[in-house]
Simulated scan of single mutants.
Amino acid sequence: MTITLEVESTLTDRYQTTVPETVRRALKLGKRDKLHYVIRQNGEVVLTRATTHEGDDPVLGQFLGFLADDIAAHPERLQGLDAGLVERIQSLVGGIDLDLDAALPEDDE
């Protein structure tokens, strides 16, 4: 026998809602997770956790696409860095040790 749980939530004036705790637990949702909706012809809506591809960053992807388009459209705008600027950058960050794979502290997420 299949057990069905039913829960409700309310829309705010801005058409926002809180996902009920039972739904969050069932979908294993955390803060900043994305939701996926499937709207069927009969008006039924299926809500699932959106699958993400590890390493994909949609904002970064859009920015890199913008840069590629701009470079293709205006290659004459490209400029090399002069030695003085490179030296200045090295003086500011040359001795900093950084692990890009380290997890962020909870306060920075």
Rank of each mutant, 00 (worst) to 15 (best):
D107Q: 01
V23S: 10
L5K: 10
A26V: 14
A103R: 00
L5I: 11
G65T: 01
L98I: 14
T10F: 07
R77F: 05
R24Y: 11
D13M: 05
G65I: 02
L64V: 10
D82H: 13
L60F: 08
H74F: 06
P75T: 07
I3T: 03
E106D: 07
R77V: 08
D101Q: 03
D82W: 00
K31A: 04
A50T: 07
F66W: 09
I71C: 14
L92Y: 00
Q41L: 04
V7A: 04
D33N: 12
A102N: 13
R77I: 05
L29I: 04
E76N: 13
A26Y: 07
D97F: 03
D99K: 00
P20W: 10
N42R: 15
D13R: 05
T52A: 03
T52M: 12
T51R: 02
Q62E: 15
P105E: 12
E76F: 09
I71S: 11
I39V: 09
T2E: 07
L60Y: 11
D70L: 03
D57E: 09
L29G: 13
K34H: 15
F63H: 08
G30S: 12
L92H: 00
H36A: 12
V46Q: 07
I89R: 12
E87S: 09
D33A: 14
A68T: 10
I96H: 05
N42M: 01
T51H: 12
R25S: 08
S9L: 09
R88H: 01
A103L: 10
P58W: 14
D108L: 00
L67V: 10
V23H: 03
G95D: 08
L27E: 03
D97Y: 06
D56N: 15
A83I: 10
G61A: 11
G80K: 07
T18S: 09
T18Y: 15
A103F: 00
